[in-house]
Design a protein around this nucleic acid. Structure first.
Lengths: 198, 198
DNA sequence: GTTAATACCTAGTAGGTACTCAGTAGTGCT
DNA sequence: AGCACTACTGAGTACCTACTAGGTATTAAC
């Protein structure tokens, strides 16, 4: 009886557990949104109890924050890596779309949260407002000098990308996101001067 | 103490109450999504109890269905009225956008539900899949003969419209949806032949 | 081997969830 | 005035919600 009990639940180092929690939460929010997310479901998905989960993230809002911060870091890293030193907005958008086409769950997470967080009392409201502004500012900066209305075009590019992604998510089997975007890009970048480098 | 209690709550005819329920629900779903919607909140918003509410809609799913059916009927009526006998896709899109610019709550309702319902077990999943298909088929039919790839263009138009609307919803004070769309339309309809009538 | 840190647990709180049942009170018809 | 209809209520069911307090068991450091 002094045998160590065979536990189903492993005790993990904090970083590892945190990573697992973020993965599970990402999937669940993509399915149900933040309002539809329950701590119990996340805990179950990680094989621990709710207080065990709360030990790592503090609260439900803290959990959401953790997910978003993780994604930000991850996306930034990956985009820098994929893009190299290009400054062609078209190339950068293409890289973004290519990456997204391999992670529909993440894209869905953002689609759902983006819509949910339109209302000001959503815990991710400020985050998404800032994110949208950043995206457009960044795009606009890259377009400056290559088109008469960089801001206006930046908004259209972002809108078209988001819209196409939702369309793709509804029917990922029949629609290929990258192909769709290539066609759309021919269209929307038509009047943009190519980068000076060639 | 045997005095009849002064009631705050009026007894309404079914149609009228139903209409009120739909209005309140529309607002609440736009704010919290369907997963975040509670029957209690809807009942409170209508000044009745939860069982009183359930008397009219049967269940929470029934409530959602009622809202969507009402919107379908309403949108169809209004669009036919606004468009008259035009068959210009550009005119029809403009009419749609003009209408939407006056009902941000409704647009938000659809934005949130559209994203939420991407997952197959959402009660509105089928509804939105069909809706998207209808939109694109309708647009594509209008574009046929006026552009080389009607289906592809229809998808882009729908995507751009949806994306711009979300962008607008995030900042309705600073952005004017109609202006934004006009600029986008100049762009996206550039290669579309004008209707044969002129 | 002892100590300190910590990953995680059990038990409990206070309240919210959709929904049912059986009855009441207001309304229209005759 | 009486009757049928129905909009609506109060009470209750079975369960889920985020979160806390306080403790245990595992690991790492020395």
């Amino acid at each position: 009886m002094t045998q160590p009990i065979r536990r189903e639940r492993a005790r993990l180092p904090a970083a590892e557990r945190r990573r697992q929690i973020i993965d599970v939460t990402t999937r669940l929010i993509a399915e149900r949104g933040f309002w539809g997310l329950s701590m119990q479901d996340v805990a179950d998905g990680c094989g621990l109890t709710v207080p065990g989960l709360l030990h790592h993230v503090g609260s439900k809002d803290g959990l959401l924050l953790a997910v978003l911060e993780h994604r930000d870091a991850e996306d930034l890293r990956s985009l820098n890596e994929a893009v190299g030193d290009t400054e062609s907005p078209r190339e950068i958008c293409a890289a973004l779309v290519r990456r997204n086409s391999w992670q529909p769950e993440i894209v869905r997470l953002f689609a759902v949260l983006e819509a949910e967080s339109l209302t000001p009392d959503h815990p991710a409201h400020d985050y998404f407002a800032a994110r949208q502004q950043n995206t457009i500012d960044g795009l606009s900066r890259l377009l400056k000098g290559r088109t008469p209305d960089p801001d206006g075009l930046a908004v259209k590019i972002a809108a078209l990308m988001d819209g196409l992604q939702v369309h793709w998510l509804r029917n990922p089997a029949e629609i290929d996101l990258v192909t769709q975007w290539m066609a759309a890009a021919d269209f929307i970048f038509r009047d943009v001067d190519p980068p000076s480098g060639g």
